[in-house]
Design a protein around this nucleic acid. Structure first.
Lengths: 162, 162
DNA sequence: AGAAAAGATGTTACTTTGTATCGTTTATTC
DNA sequence: GAATAAACGATACAAAGTAACATCTTTTCT
């Protein structure tokens, strides 16, 4: 099982997460000749500020209030950056929260699901063949041809359990 | 595997679906001393008009435009009815669509997922132990305690496949 | 039965999330 | 270096959902 749950739910040097994410993003975009412009990078960095999914308007506020960006940023700008990052597989959207989170292993194909802690909000991404197969098998029994999946598990992360 | 996919994706006498749903709703509410008021029943009936998930504002429009209801209905009224129906397990919310669909087997405990046809919109509900176990097992490996799940599969239903 | 409390609805106004549009700027290509 | 494509800034708007409060209907409790 591929997952960042060991990191996401435990104390760690988060700067390394951010650096790694930005680094991989640059590499990937470079290889694909996709343009990781300053705003796009800023949005990605803002999303990667923690392991908690961030709403689009939270991103707008964060960037608008930070000193580094001279002026206010508008929702469409952020949504466009989000769309780009989604297209590149650098972030994911959590439908149940209307929020966005950085992908810890972009590039590799992965059919993922998310473990959202209802206590602290921290969210880990997992990719597991068992889950994948179970879903495809179940769909197959209904003669349903799977194109994409949204799997979001809400519960309590190891750190928040008593 | 418990599912209504055989019905949902194929030609059938849909009046029987509607009747059955309303009948079970009455029974359940009766048993629970929950009040299935006229508006709540109207909303439930509107949602059950097809096997396609319906947005809240579509429900508002449908009811407002129907001859049976004398006057316009407001969003909060519909949202309140929706909340009641969700609480009673008579309908489900599809996060990825911001839409609502009738539950074909309310009352029985079921951990469900949905097969959403991207072509015709018809959506079937499934309940499968394999999927359930796979998810819980995967979460367990991350020491994550599952409370609830959102599983929504998008693809092509048997009827829409070439 | 009648008062009191609880539950449900009607209505207005508002918040949150997400887009269409258009003019301008910045890269890329030839 | 002009032409083209891609990205951004800004305004306005659409869609989804809720807070608040007045009113009405049930239920409950003497």
């Amino acid at each position: 099982m591929l997952t960042n749950s060991r990191i996401a739910y435990h104390r760690h040097d988060h700067k390394r997460c951010i650096n790694a994410a930005l680094c991989r993003a640059k590499e990937l975009c470079d290889a694909r000749k996709a343009r990781l412009t300053p705003i796009r990078e800023t949005v990605l960095k803002t999303i990667w500020a923690s392991h908690r999914p961030l709403g689009a308007y939270e991103i707008v506020d964060q960037i608008s209030q930070s000193e580094t960006s001279a002026h206010r940023v508008f929702p469409p700008t952020v949504y466009r950056a989000i769309q780009f990052l989604l297209d590149q597989g650098l972030i994911h959207r959590l439908s149940s929260l209307n929020a966005y989170i950085g992908c810890p292993f972009p590039g590799n194909y992965h059919s993922d699901f998310f473990l959202i802690c209802e206590q602290c909000g921290s969210t880990a991404e997992c990719s597991d063949d068992q889950v994948d197969h179970a879903v495809i098998h179940a769909a197959g029994r209904a003669n349903f041809q799977v194109e994409s999946k949204v799997i979001e598990i809400v519960g309590i992360c190891p750190e928040c359990q008593v």
